[in-house]
Design a protein around this nucleic acid. Structure first.
Length: 256
DNA sequence: ATGGTAGCCTTGCTA
């Protein structure tokens, strides 16, 4: 099973790019983030025409996540448990071929010093609690998406310049490590020890042209899924296209 | 020290 994740920065603005990539790469499952639309504005027909079933947790203008799957999806969970008052559309999980797969859009958290940062940290605490409960089920799972976390200084082009950013702050990184310490595996890093492999390049200041990016889109795998991990790759092609998202695609292959 | 880009349906906010 080939699973991809992509922060598209508006699905409607990105639709031609998304359709072209899907037709070529033909993933079995796709986790989308920042679709920036309610379910009513979701381009359902175009994606169904490529053979995908669709689950959406939408929101007007901001956030929004979706799952596309060639195989049936069951037991859909909409929203990260732990705070019924949280209205931001950032978490969607379903069972596909016996694997729980989540599309995650973790809060950015900037600027540090506003309520956005404690919201991010609290959201990560809820994710830790939820990951622990998933582990207890012993069902294999994959948590894929835009974590808005640079795990280490090897994952950012300018560690000093970024050290006080919410994506690199020690409190953010500690919570990401906590997820790993539960027994989850950062699939890309497990297979690629080399530093400076990025999934995001800011639109501004020629960052893409100079390959000055960050690795913030991740696959976290449960132990039983890690045993089945065959490959995990960053596909830089979509970032170089016209009208590109500022994130590119990362995908992994799990033994069926 | 600043500004630089993109998408929202805003004339600022989020990233």
């Amino acid at each position: 099973m080939k699973i991809a994740t992509w922060n598209v920065n508006s699905l409607r603005a990105r639709l031609p790019n998304v359709l072209a990539w899907l037709a070529e790469a033909r993933p079995d499952v796709v986790c989308l983030q920042e679709i920036k639309t309610e379910a009513a504005g979701f381009p359902e027909l175009e994606l169904k025409a490529l053979g995908y079933q669709i689950e959406v947790l939408g929101q007007k203008s901001y956030n929004g996540v979706a799952l596309l799957s060639r195989l049936p999806m069951t037991d859909v969970l909409r929203g990260l448990p732990g705070d019924a008052s949280d209205e931001q559309a950032r978490y969607l999980e379903a069972t596909i071929a016996g694997v729980r797969i989540a599309s995650i859009y973790l809060p950015n958290g900037n600027p540090v010093g506003t309520d956005k940062y404690p919201y991010k940290l609290a959201w990560m605490e809820r994710l830790i609690v939820h990951a622990r409960s998933l582990l207890a089920t012993e069902i294999p799972f994959v948590l894929a998406g835009d974590y808005n976390i640079c795990p280490t200084d090897d994952d950012v082009y300018d560690p000093v310049g970024w050290r006080d950013d919410a994506l690199c702050r020690p409190e953010s990184r500690a919570r990401f490590r906590h997820l790993l310490n539960l027994g989850l595996t950062d699939a890309f890093r497990a297979l690629h020890p080399e530093p400076h492999r990025y999934t995001f390049w800011d639109y501004q200041a020629g960052r893409w042209f100079r390959d000055e990016g960050l690795r913030i889109d991740h696959f976290l795998l449960s132990p039983r899924t890690t045993d089945r991990l065959i490959a995990c790759e960053i596909d830089r092609e979509p970032r170089g296209k016209e009208k590109a998202s500022d994130h590119t695609v990362i995908w992994c292959e799990i033994q069926d």
